[in-house]
Design a binder for these strands. Structure first.
Length: 475
RNA sequence: GGCGCCAUCGUCUAAGGGUUAGGACGGAGCCCUCUCAAGGCUUUAAUAGGGGUUCGAAUCCCCUUGGCGCUACCA
């Protein structure tokens, strides 16, 4: 039974690095027929917020990611305490009665790392039991077997064989003096109880894993397979943080910037993973089909953004590629939402709506473009850009456009071929280049100097509107 | 400080003993063309440094340097 989990702490907004971790777990589960579990690691009561929980759900829902089981660590505290007490009873942990050190000073001893508070490890069981019985507060620490000289080892699916001497592992806490489990204990107890088979998480946990192996062993549980992921970092080399780098770290930023959910998933997958065959733009099923741990890199990936380009240019490019190549029907809901938000009306004729979207989407990079650059296609209320005005101010242009309007109005037939025939005939008669009329038409119909083929524009805008807009510009 | 991890174009990456070190984004240019995109073509740009091993090293080993992580009764 393959079971993986994504276990975020709800202490901030859904981070793009967290989203990527979810995606890699999800990909592994979906590819191998496993179960995807979402678990809120909310044991740090002080820092948890409902806003954060909402943000996690919102972000995952937007990315169209799903899970099969859901848990909250705070509902499972009894299980964690029982695990800590079991380890204590087995003699693999001890009580530490040292008061909590609230200072931030580092515990350094002659070049040696701190390994435990003095006099606690060695305390006789009788004394420990007596003091605990007397109500003295204590923290339960793992009794790291340093005397044995053994090294803790595990094989990581990404980073390979790992080993660390017990001399270099401090007696970490399992249960706090307030009776709440620490992250390490809660996480391992839950992973064991939920029978997690593969733990796929950020590389920042790589060195914590030695502690986790020790906990699994002490609980008598099977040690899961680990796969650590390289971290996502900022161009300055620092870990991405909301405080330092702003909105780029938040998943909602990309939703609000008009990204297609899948294209952002695609982009995230390419950070630290490669299908190794030069493919970049892929459908969801294609990614699921080729996702393997062997394709995951070991070095951190930079999310490339700057003051001038707040969004990674490659993410934007990928979005434009998906925007133009997905079946139109798939992007229609997103376009509709953007148009509604911009106060524009959606054409009632769905086929026509789809054809207009299809005509203009190849020039756009995000969904937001439909509400801005796409305005003339969905509203009569649009302005004429300076560059378009120049096209209209070409000598004779306005008069020619007016004449074109009359010829179209007098012809019961309408269509790209009909428009082209009238336009070219008129240009020939007057001895002007067709370009004057073509560019002028585009300017009159959309207020823009750039855009799709002018003839396609007539059908996109529609007969009556096209004639009206040509006439409007003639004055 | 200790321990661990990492190191290929500006960025994402491929090549895991033998390649003119490949692709993509971005930049520059050309072609196409009714404009703008798209597309096609060309171009720009990399194996951190130093030692080994080897006929041959981006690739294996060592050192240095740099970056990151952990070193909390945070996660």
């Amino acid at each position: 039974m393959l079971r993986v989990r994504f276990a975020p702490s709800p202490t901030g907004y859904l981070h793009i690095g967290s989203a990527r971790t979810f995606i890699f777990n999800w990909l592994y589960a979906r590819r191998n027929g496993g179960t995807m579990i979402l678990r809120l690691d909310d044991t740090d009561v002080e820092r948890n917020t409902q806003a954060s929980i909402d943000s996690i759900f919102d972000g995952l829902r937007w990315l169209d990611l799903s899970w099969d089981e859901f848990y909250r660590q705070s509902d499972r505290v009894e299980l964690h305490r029982a695990a800590a007490n079991l380890i204590l009873e087995k003699g693999l942990a001890y009580r530490d009665f040292t008061p909590a050190d609230t200072s931030l000073e580092e515990k350094v001893h002659d070049g040696q790392a701190w390994s435990g508070n003095p006099g606690q490890r060695e305390m006789p069981k009788e004394e420990s039991d007596r003091r605990a019985g007397a109500g003295e507060p204590f923290v339960i620490r793992y009794l790291v077997p340093r005397e044995t000289g053994r090294a803790v080892t595990f094989s990581d699916s990404v980073y390979g064989e790992q080993a660390k001497s017990c001399d270099d592992i401090e007696d970490f806490a399992l249960l706090r003096s307030n009776g709440m489990p620490t992250y390490h204990l809660a996480s391992c107890a839950d992973d064991a109880d939920l029978r997690i088979s593969h733990i796929i998480r950020g590389q920042d946990h790589l060195t914590n894993t030695f502690k986790h192996v020790l906990i699994f062993e002490a609980m008598g549980a099977a040690v899961p397979q680990f796969a650590h992921l390289p971290l996502l970092i900022a161009p300055d080399g620092a870990k991405l943080s909301k405080r330092k780098h702003g909105p780029v770290v938040s998943v909602t930023t990309y939703r609000d910037a008009g990204f297609l959910p899948h294209s952002y998933v695609n982009f995230l997958c390419l950070l630290g993973w490669s299908p190794k065959d030069n493919r970049e733009q892929m459908t969801r099923d294609e990614i699921i089909g080729v996702f393997r741990f062997e394709g995951i890199n070991r070095s951190n990936s930079v999310v490339n953004f700057s003051e001038e380009d707040p969004i990674d240019p490659k993410a934007l490019w990928l979005n434009s590629q998906h925007l133009r190549s997905l079946p139109v029907a798939e992007i229609l809901p997103g376009v509709t939402a953007v148009l509604q938000a911009a106060g524009l009306t959606i054409p009632e004729d769905v086929a026509h709506f789809a054809s207009v979207v299809d005509l203009i989407r190849a020039r756009y990079t995000t969904l937001l473009d439909f509400g801005v650059k796409g305005r003339p296609y969905f509203s009569d209320d649009f302005s004429i850009e300076p560059a378009a005005m120049e096209k209209l101010d070409v000598a004779g242009a306005r008069e020619l456009l007016a004449e074109l309007a009359e010829r179209l109005a007098g012809d019961p037939e309408f269509g790209e071929a009909v428009v082209e025939a009238h336009l070219r005939a008129l240009a020939t008669e007057r001895g002007v280049k067709a370009g004057v009329l073509i560019n002028g038409s585009r300017a009159a119909l959309t207020g823009q100097a750039v855009g799709p083929s002018a003839f396609h524009l007539f059908t996109a805008v529609g007969r009556e509107r096209a004639i009206a807009r040509l006439r409007a510009v003639a004055r």
